[in-house]
Nucleic acid binder design. Structure first.
Lengths: 168, 168
DNA sequence: AACAGGTGTTACACATGTAAAACATTTCTC
DNA sequence: GAGAAATGTTTTACATGTGTAACACCTGTT
């Protein structure tokens, strides 16, 4: 059994102060570190397409909901601030990937939709992205992956209730 | 069994394109989302002490290794760029939490150490931080946590080999 | 002595969040 | 009903934190 980085950090803390209950660190540290490595890996194929992950998330949100979304909805959907969404939308619009339509009833709101080009980009990019991710995860067999998913789902439900406040 | 956010996103994708193999998304999405929520939670007690998580990580690295570290070592230890470490060290030094000593042999390198105040801050803050994290994770019982830790460790070892390149 | 390589800092670009502003709508009050 | 106040939506202004790349400096080698 090999040691991961978190285990060695925990060992350092124990050596310095054996009283510490490092239990939470072992779990949270591993989640954070896995997330950092995975996010770094995920960036590679997107950069090849000239997109940041945040931009891709935004496009994906419009694509998967399959309807027009307002900037506010996009902010909630992608867990980012309204200001960040505004900026991203501007560059995506300049690149011809999204389009706006203003509401007839309420002139405050816009409706964002994908252009044909934007939709095509997501539809070619997402399978490629998923294939890449599958390769990154290939060190774990199917069973380990689903088991891990299920346990993280349990944790995630707890955290959403305790911290996130829920969305929508 | 309640649905988490990732499950609902996956369902949206399946509705739009049933061909998609969303397997990787379910695992990676959950890891990323858990990490985001946990990091947000972790920030709260640190902000109360006037520190960012990055600053606390840096102080913690010096404390747990129990020796003086160079800025370069700190950058590797905290997985951030040299420039970021330089900036952080400047503000931590201005606040009197760290101290520098220049090497006698090699005048390029500095050795960073905690001041008494810095060490005291870490030593009071870390247990508080761990207690807070324990509370956040209290939705899962001991057994679930250790099982999850172990499985993530397995994944992490794979990822470190595949992506991270290892450290030290 | 020149140079190849390593170490830390600075300069710059950029993405993000918070807070304020700009604008539209709805509701309340008289 | 008309005007005022409250509410909602998006954008803009500003501050901040980060990474890349250029820079300055030092060492050891040839």
């Amino acid at each position: 059994m090999t040691d991961d980085i978190v285990a060695s950090v925990v060992r350092q803390w124990q050596a310095v102060n054996p009283e510490l209950d490092t239990g939470p660190m072992e779990l949270i540290g591993r989640i954070n570190r896995c997330a950092a490595l995975l996010q770094q890996a995920e960036d590679a194929p997107l950069r090849a397409a000239g997109l940041t992950r945040a931009e891709f998330d935004l496009l994906g949100a419009v694509r998967r909901t399959d309807r027009e979304l307002t900037p506010g909805e996009l902010a909630r959907e992608t867990f980012s601030s309204g200001a960040a969404v505004t900026k991203r939308l501007r560059v995506l619009q300049e690149r011809g990937l999204v389009d706006r339509r203003s509401d007839d009833r309420d002139r405050r709101v816009n409706h964002i939709r994908l252009t044909g080009q934007g939709r095509e980009l997501v539809d070619t990019l997402l399978p490629r992205q998923l294939a890449y991710e599958r390769a990154v995860l290939s060190g774990l067999d199917e069973q380990s992956r689903t088991r891990l998913s299920a346990q993280l789902s349990e944790l995630l439900v707890q955290l959403e209730g305790r911290i996130g406040g829920g969305r929508r």
